[in-house]
Amino acid sequence: MQVRSTSMRGGIVIRRAAARDAKRLTRLVRGSRAYEGQYAAMVAGYRVGPDYVETHRVFVAVAADDAAGRVLGFYSLVLVPPELDLLFVEDGMQGRGIGRSLVEHMKSEAGAAGLDRVRVVSHPPAEGFYRGVGALFTGTVSANPPAVVWDRPELEFLIQ
């Protein structure tokens, strides 16, 4: 299923990710400026593998007019238990509505799968974004060293 959005000039297409996208998704995660400094260790060795892409509902946003299909952002919806596991937008493309479009698409996918809510354990600097697109704060997930050494906000989307 492809969905078109006109949230940026030229629009974007959101399509199901394929195993061949895995390396691009890994580069997007590892290269995110949101994970610089104290957060760098969390994504340093992170890998989005082809098996992950095939197991979960992973969708990518690409520019509608880009024949090369450059990935501008992506998300991963895990159905059991319901969780938005990953959501990244390329650094230079943030602020153009791509993240908002990905969240709306995720909510649609979650509803189609029969989910009534989707949990998000947020990267601390991203909490404001999630609240801005409708997620409700539900608590805090404690640090889990050595992988994660800071508490993280827990939120959820109510799916209608």
Score class of each variant (00 low, 15 high):
Q2I: 13
V3H: 12
T6D: 15
T6S: 14
M8V: 15
R9F: 08
G11R: 14
V13S: 10
V13L: 15
V13H: 10
I14V: 13
R15S: 10
R16N: 01
A17V: 00
A17T: 04
A19S: 12
A19E: 13
A19H: 08
R20Y: 00
D21P: 05
D21A: 03
D21C: 07
A22E: 01
A22L: 04
R24V: 04
L25F: 02
L25R: 03
T26R: 00
T26Y: 02
T26E: 06
R27W: 02
V29S: 07
R30I: 01
R30L: 00
R30Y: 00
G31M: 05
G31Y: 01
G31R: 07
S32W: 06
A34M: 15
Y35R: 12
G37K: 14
G37Y: 11
Q38N: 06
Y39C: 09
A41H: 15
A41C: 06
M42N: 02
M42V: 12
A44N: 09
G45C: 00
Y46P: 00
G49V: 10
D51G: 14
V53R: 09
T55M: 11
T55P: 00
T55A: 15
R57Q: 13
F59Y: 11
V60E: 05
V60K: 00
A61K: 02
A61F: 02
V62N: 06
V62C: 10
A63I: 04
A63Y: 01
D66Y: 01
D66T: 04
A67D: 09
A67M: 03
A67H: 05
A67W: 03
G69H: 01
G69R: 02
V71E: 07
G73D: 08
F74I: 03
Y75R: 07
L77N: 04
L79I: 15
L79T: 15
L86W: 05
L87A: 05
V89S: 07
E90A: 12
D91S: 03
Q94K: 07
G95P: 02
I98P: 07
G99I: 05
S101G: 06
S101C: 10
S101I: 02
L102N: 05
L102T: 06
L102F: 01
V103L: 04
V103H: 01
H105N: 07
H105W: 04
M106P: 02
S108R: 14
E109D: 11
G111H: 13
G111K: 13
A113Y: 07
G114A: 10
G114T: 07
L115D: 06
R119H: 09
V121I: 14
V121M: 07
P124D: 04
A126D: 05
F129A: 03
F129I: 04
R131W: 01
G134E: 11
G134L: 11
L136K: 14
F137I: 07
T138L: 14
G139D: 10
S142Q: 14
N144G: 09
P145M: 11
P145K: 10
V148K: 14
V148G: 11
V149T: 15
W150L: 14
D151M: 15
D151L: 15
R152Y: 15
R152S: 15
P153L: 12
P153C: 13
L155I: 09
I159C: 03
I159Q: 02
Q160G: 14
